[in-house]
Amino acid sequence: MKYCALASGSNGNCYYIANADDAILIDVGINAKHLELRMANLSIAPAGIKAIFITHEHTDHIRGLAVFCKRYQIPVYMTSGSYRGARLLLPENLTHIIRRDQRVEIGSLTVCGVPKYHDAQEPCSFLVSNGEINIGVLTDIGRICDNVKHVIQQADILLLEANYDEELLDRGSYPFFLKNRIRNGWGHLSNHIALETFLEYRTSRLRHLILGHLSGQNNNVELVYRTFAPHCGGLKLSIATRHQETELFDSQVLLPQLTTKIVIRQVSYQTTFVFPEK
């Protein structure tokens, strides 16, 4: 599988995952022109995207969605709450409403919705698998629930939110209501909570940790690296930023030891995800 962060941060998010000719995007939170430029930097053809999955309706996750999906006629999968909240004029033939815990097959990829805590209407994260490699994309996580724990335990590759440093947020210029919204259990994960969660629930199968959705004012790459690097021996560590795309990673390079026995490592799709209460 190949994967990358095309944009990651409080100003825009977009993640690419592909298996052979089957490619998807999770969120389109930057404008279509910038997305096309970043894809071109990695030799990714926009016309090759077979589906777009939306985590929720906040602007930093849907800013470029309407233009991009219309331009390339790409089906969009989102919950009914996200669709209502987005208030976008999407073509009816391209719009697919899904449950927060629904599994969708896109060619050789299975995309599994993961209900989560966030201050949006019917938000979900996603776990993507080709039957051998599992990639979890966990951003905009208000608090750690059993669903998040399950994804971390199942992931070979994990993109995890590390949104803010608690001290920087406390000392920063954000008004009190915004600081409270970020850390009230419906907003985002701090570096400290993300690290604690990673350490407690990671398993030996995890080979690549990508930290993303960093706040522009309340976090920085150097701080995140210093927080996580001492705990990532034997594990590839990357940090996705708002300024540019990551490299296009290849799981075959990352996980050369995998064999046909990997089938026992695939996602347990029989797991019942718990729906966070409002």
Rank of each mutant, 00 (worst) to 15 (best):
K2V: 06
D101H: 11
L65I: 03
G12N: 11
D21C: 04
C232P: 04
A23W: 07
L89P: 10
S82E: 04
Q73G: 02
S43I: 02
I62K: 06
H208E: 09
L37R: 15
G216T: 13
K2W: 06
R181T: 08
Y164M: 15
T246L: 00
R202T: 03
T271G: 10
A155V: 01
Q73R: 12
E247C: 10
I264W: 14
R87G: 13
S80D: 08
C14D: 09
M1P: 05
S238H: 02
E132W: 05
L90A: 01
T259N: 13
T95A: 04
A40F: 10
A194C: 09
Q154C: 00
L94M: 07
I210P: 02
R84S: 03
L109D: 03
R171Y: 09
T246Y: 09
E92L: 04
L209M: 01
F273N: 10
R181G: 09
T241H: 08
F228V: 11
I30H: 12
P256K: 10
L254W: 00
A155K: 07
H34E: 13
I182L: 14
C112H: 03
L248I: 10
N13K: 10
V128M: 04
K261Q: 14
R181D: 11
T110L: 03
D101S: 11
L209H: 06
R143G: 05
A120Q: 12
Y117H: 15
H61N: 15
L214H: 00
G233E: 13
E166V: 14
N147Q: 10
C4T: 14
N218Q: 08
L138A: 01
E167L: 13
L94S: 05
L223S: 13
V104H: 01
